[in-house]
Each structure stands twice: as structure tokens, then as C-alpha cells.
Amino acid sequence: MKKINADKIVWLILLILSIFLVLFPIYIMFKYSISDRRSWITGGEYPVPWWPFKPTLEMYKYYLGDKRFWSNGWLSLKIALLTVSFSLILGTPAAYSLARFKFNGKAFLLFLILAIRFYPDISSVIPVSYIFNKSFLYNLPNEIKISLAHCLLSLPYIIFIAQGVFETIPVDLEEQALILGTSRFYAFLRIVLPIAAPGLAAGAIYSFLLSWNEFVFSYFITATSVSSEVPLPVYLKTLLGSFSPNLVSISTLSLLVSIPVIIFTFIVQKYMIAGMIKGAVK
């Protein structure tokens, strides 16, 4: 009996430690974002306090009233939603066929999906930004260019996750529909997709997060274009790069960028885990 207790204590300590490790940086970000000037510029006379002397919401007021922040956020949201729709439209049918049919060259197609993930983002961004900015695609709006580039990153995951989802759906349902005379396309659209929807939601969530958080492709594609609107991560980078960065401003923007996705994760974590597990089993 005593031994079980020891196990439990170790378990509890580790659990608290890992929760602390995850939450501590987020707390620091929050603390800096509401700091007054005296709480972060100490001049070495006293240590940085763990809670600001005079908490203030100055920076939040500044950003929430700032037109540039809203237009950049709107651009980020548009890119993320477009990425989700592009990769679902392209990915789900392909995943369905990969899950259901046996055909020559299937191994090659699977290898192709993996191969694109072998390229480091930072080197594949050179050709990709070249294609989008120096060819006939130049005139596309930024959100479409960037979301097409993000699609390249999310498509392999969507295909893998969706393939796992489709494999769990029994074939009988479609076969009955096919015997009753529907076309393959109709059976896919009206029978398989509705059943697969919760699992596919995981793929959609994953690609939404990926696109919202992505930096490298957004940075390179917007760097060489004329538009002044940039996705939020790139906007944050411009603050980091300045000569004497304002830590309060950085942490406020950081928190504002993270809050939507943090809330989002708490709401949808069930779907996320279910889908990830289905996709990850392979």
C-alpha cells in the first residue's frame, strides 16, 4: 500500500512541474504586457518584480485602437481560413482514394507526400517565394499567395490524418449505396463525408493553427511585395528586430496573437486529439 502512495506522489510532482513549465512563460508574457514602465526598466537597482507595481492596460488600449493591428489580424485570419479550405478541398478526396483503393504507384504517391516534408522550410521558401513573386502569379492578392504556400505545409498532414479517418469507416455503407445505384462521387459526398466530418475537423484545426502560427513563408512572400499589410507573426517580428525593443509592446502583441488560438485549443482539444491519434497510428 505504501508503494502505491510513493508512485502517486512522484506522479503528482511531475504533473505539477510540467504544468508549471508550460504555464510559466505564458504568465511572464501576461505579466510584461500589463507592466508599467518602472516594473520592467529597473536600471539594475532592484530585481524585476513578479507582479507589476502598477498594472496598466495602456498597451492593450493602444493595440485594440490601432488600425494596423486589425488589418494585419484580418489578413492572418483570411490566410488561415483559405489554407483550411484549400487543403481540405485538395486533400480529402485524395486521402479517401488512398484509403479505399489499391492501385499501381500508390507507394510512390505516399513517398511524394513525405518528400515535400524533407525540404527544410527555410530553403524551400526560396523557390516558392520566387514562383509567387516573380512569375505570372505576381498579381494574386497576398492572402492567396501565402495560403497556397501554407497549403504545401498542411496538405501532407491533412492527407495523413484524413486517410486514418477514412480507414476507420466501414466500407459496407458505401457499398450498399453503390448497389442502390449511386455514383462513387455521390456516395463520397453524401455518405462518407458526413461520417468523417468530426475526424476531418482535426485536420482542419491542425492546418488552421499551422497557418496562423507560420512565419517563414509569410515573411519571405510579404517581404518582396508592395502591400503594407503583413500577417501577425511577421508584424511581431518587426517589433523584435528594432534596435531597443519595447518589451511591453512585444508581450502585448504576443498575447493578442496567442489568445485566439489558446481559446480555440481549449474548445476543440477533444477533436484535435481524436484526429491526431487516428493519423498518428501509422
Binding site: V22, P25, I26, W212, L240, S258, F264, T265, Q269, I273
Partner: peptide, 14 residues
């Protein structure tokens, strides 16, 4: 799961 949701650039800035 939170670290996965927070943008990388935010993690670096923190």
C-alpha cells in the same frame, strides 16, 4: 497542448 497552439515567434519573444 498549449505550446503547440502558441505561435513559434511568440515563444521566441517570450
Amino acid at each position: 497542448l498549449l505550446p503547440l497552439a502558441i505561435p513559434t515567434i511568440v515563444t521566441t519573444s517570450v
